[in-house]
Simulated scan of single mutants.
Amino acid sequence: MAAVLLALAGPGVGTAAAAAPCPGHKVRTLAFSTGKIVLYKKRGYVCAVTYAKRPGARKTMSVSVQARGSRPVRDKGRYTRLAGPVKVHSGHRCVWVKGSVGAGSISSGWILC
């Protein structure tokens, strides 16, 4: 019966987990001791996600993106794998990205100018 259900479902079922959480193309990865932030860009928008180096148990995680001249957009909570995505309209302005997983963190300074 399981084989019939798999045949009916067809290819591509279960592949959504592999899809990127943000639209656009990956422009930068910022690694730190307990995780990494991956940045994507599309049509003037910058999107960021913080990934845990060791997913599994819930831990405090955060991600923040701020376009120069605007307020930061944040996601913070207790997650098992990732925080975000958060997206801001940056146009051609620089962005400042911050992220943390547990005790490890990173702050980019102004980038993507």
Rank of each mutant, 00 (worst) to 15 (best):
V65Y: 05
L30W: 01
V38W: 00
H92C: 08
V27S: 11
A9T: 08
S107C: 04
P11L: 13
L30Y: 01
V27N: 09
I106M: 13
K53S: 01
V86C: 08
V86L: 07
V97G: 10
S62Q: 07
A2V: 07
A31H: 00
M1K: 15
G102S: 04
R28K: 15
V63T: 00
G102L: 00
T29E: 10
A57P: 09
L8W: 10
C94R: 13
G44Y: 09
C94T: 05
T34L: 09
V65H: 09
A19N: 10
L6T: 06
A48Q: 04
P21E: 05
P72W: 03
A16M: 02
R54Y: 12
G35W: 01
T80K: 15
S100A: 15
G14R: 04
R68C: 06
P72E: 03
C47P: 08
V101A: 01
C22T: 05
V27M: 09
G24F: 05
S62L: 11
A52N: 04
G12H: 12
G10C: 01
V86N: 06
T50V: 07
V38H: 00
G24K: 01
V86S: 11
G44M: 06
Y40A: 03
S62N: 15
R74S: 13
G44W: 05
A48Y: 00
K87F: 05
V46R: 06
P11H: 12
F32M: 01
G69M: 02
R93W: 04
V13E: 13
G12C: 08
H89N: 12
V49K: 01
K42E: 15
A48V: 01
K76W: 10
R71N: 09
V46T: 12
V65W: 07
Y40P: 08
R93M: 01
G69Y: 08
V97H: 11
T29V: 10
T80D: 09
M61L: 10
C113D: 13
R74E: 09
A7R: 13
A19E: 14
A31T: 01
V97P: 12
M1L: 11
A18D: 15
G10F: 04
G104V: 02
P72F: 00
K26M: 12
W110Q: 06
R93I: 03
Y40L: 02
G56Y: 09
R71F: 03
